[in-house]
Nucleic acid binder design. Structure first.
Length: 210
DNA sequence: CGCCAGGGCCATA
DNA sequence: TATGGCCATGGC
């Protein structure tokens, strides 16, 4: 059934791939800024760095200045601190991508979860989209989708994540692709106020709302 | 005007 | 472990 969902979405949307960022560090920044925030607001914030978005800049910037830059993304007081925290973590690896990628997935995941402002979704987003680790990303769209399809995956983040990882190959490309498809479908149809009539998953969903 | 958006932290029970 | 309040902006 899970593969049926994937195949249906793939047939409808094609080869979607993410993350909308130019560098791994931009993925990390975007992952923080998009917490409970529309991506259009994140784009506004990113643009205000005016092309000068680096770990060194984030650390050098006074907190107040950083807050002013990311202000359009909302929650700027806490997110400014989160950005400095994740950047400091990145610096402990000298921003060396290979060094990070060579560490065991579960070790690095536990480690990054200790960073202030990094919860389950932010951790998995960074690990998958910045460092290509085969870790499944669950977000609000994913939880909503699984609450509406006939796949018993539990309710919590880790329950849904485990089911997906157990039933799908441990493949970063696949997880990237699948999550992109879920979000794209979520934005268009599987919203809080869903548009089930035109949704490609119409025949699969158990709950046809509205 | 109210609702919502690719969460996480913290206090409480 | 599991809720609930809080954080803030911009689009619709």
């Amino acid at each position: 059934m899970l593969k049926n969902i994937y195949q249906t979405l793939h047939a409808h949307y094609g080869d979607l791939r993410w993350w909308p960022a130019d560098t791994p560090f931009e993925v990390m920044v975007g992952a923080i800024l998009t917490q409970n925030t529309a991506w259009t607001n994140v784009e506004k914030a990113i643009k205000r760095f005016e092309g000068n978005l680096s770990p060194e800049r984030i650390l050098a910037l006074p907190l107040e200045d950083l807050q002013e830059i990311i202000q359009p993304a909302g929650f700027y007081r806490q997110k400014s601190q989160y950005l400095k925290a994740i950047t400091e973590w990145f610096m402990t690896y000298n921003c060396d991508l290979d060094l990070i990628k060579n560490r065991p997935l579960l070790d690095i995941r536990t480690e990054i979860l200790q960073v202030q402002g990094v919860g389950n979704e932010t951790a998995d987003s960074i690990l998958l989209y910045a460092f290509d680790f085969p870790t499944f990303v669950v977000d609000a769209y994913t939880l909503r989708l699984f609450s509406r399809i006939p796949v018993e995956a539990g309710k919590t983040y880790m329950e849904v994540k485990k089911v997906c990882e157990d039933r799908l190959p441990r493949d970063a490309e696949l997880y990237n692709h699948f999550h992109s498809l879920i979000v794209q479908n979520g934005k268009e149809y599987c919203k809080k106020k869903p548009d089930c009539q035109a949704c490609p998953l119409y025949d699969i969903c158990k709950k046809r709302i509205a």
